[in-house]
Design a protein around this nucleic acid. Structure first.
Lengths: 212, 212
DNA sequence: GACGGCATACCAACCGGTCGGTATGTAATT
DNA sequence: AATTACATACCGACCGGTTGGTATGCCGTC
């Protein structure tokens, strides 16, 4: 009931747990989930195996926690902190979003590809928990994006039969597919080409006269 | 120098090698490459480990052989034997191709997803040989498809800056991305939605007035 | 002195790959 | 026609190392 009140905003000790998750995101993006061993992770994170299993009940539990962390990471990077958020016109903002994603596709492949998209490919049939966590992450992004798509639709109209959420998932699909091509060619250029097709599609959908 | 002339058309013994590759394609599509062990494969193919390593120098060599087999498998299934090959007008044929791919996306996820697309995600950074084999398979499909895209462009024109090959790769990207969404949701419906967006994009590209 | 946050030591199962060996076929030599 | 020589297809026990996971103990903070 006295002193000792500063020095603590959160229960946060960023230490072991966060470092393990960070290492997992990095390694899984490079070599997949199954090929990433717990020992590798501990080495990369600079912790021991005891610490690992203190924080995570299993390798599978780490994957789930990683997916949740990825959701927050992506939300911050792509929405909260993104420069295109300030654009006024909803359609312009949507296009700016695509251009932002386009600009992200650069440098080494493992730096811009999707952690959960990679992981779900290996785990969808063997681990319901991981599949659900990855689905939740992808869906969270799509639902957030759908808000902006809906604003653009409200403002500029849309062809019958197309929903904001459906279009948001399609944007996700093109990005995920572009990542696969980039991995196959070990070159981001082919991925950017695909995202430019996506941008053109959106422009044509919202204004059939505009064909870049 | 008499009798014994029937009973032999080819040196073909379809046996062990083909069965192993078939098992690999099946298992990798379900659970990925790293999570598929050589022992699993032998069990599924009904051969012994000795037979496996007689036919393949390593697990990596099997992956490469599998990718090559997949290229042929896909070529036969999607081009040679496909019903849409007969359509006369190049654009109609291209759209029929997309509709054919759309119809393929049905049933359990592991039945319609792409073997090389799955594998390259895990191997691009760790195995140059596998990455190249997967790239070759994807590129072979894109180049074959680009022939038909080019015919449609010759016939109906195209916006400046879009190439047949680039568009063919984009089609590949959408399909690959659609597969990931299907895995995340364990449901083909979301993948079909994306391919319908792709179809609409093609129709708008070739005729801006047509908006389904 | 209880408890969270680690470290050390260890385990059984499984991993990709090797190895000595067998069964069968083919083709040239004798 | 029998012998030799070699190739192909396959078997299954075995190897060293790695796997995910556990059991236990130490140590600083409340």
């Amino acid at each position: 009931m006295s002193s000792r009140l500063a020095l603590r905003e959160k229960p946060a000790r960023p230490s072991a747990r966060a470092k393990i998750i960070g290492a997992a995101i990095e390694q899984v993006r490079r070599q997949g989930f199954a090929a990433t061993s717990v020992d590798d992770l501990c080495r990369a994170a600079g912790v021991t195996k005891g610490a690992f299993f203190h924080h995570f009940a299993s390798k599978e539990a780490l994957a789930v926690a990683g997916a949740e962390a990825w959701t927050e990471h992506a939300r911050a990077r792509i929405f909260t902190d993104a420069p295109w958020m300030g654009v006024a016109d909803p359609l312009d903002r949507l296009i700016a979003h695509i251009e932002f994603r386009l600009a992200m596709i650069d440098g080494p492949v493992e730096a811009f590809t999707c952690f959960v998209g990679t992981m779900v490919q290996e785990a969808y049939a063997t681990s319901p928990a991981i599949r659900q966590a990855c689905d939740a992450s992808i869906t969270a992004y799509a639902e957030r994006l759908a808000e902006d798509v809906q604003l653009a639709i409200d403002c500029h109209g849309m062809i019958h039969g197309i929903t904001a959420l459906g279009l948001a998932f399609h944007i996700q699909a093109v990005l995920q597919g572009a990542f696969i091509l980039a991995k196959a060619k070990d070159d981001p250029a082919i991925a950017r080409d695909s995202v430019r097709h996506l941008k053109r599609y959106l422009q044509m959908l919202f204004d059939p006269a505009t064909a870049t």
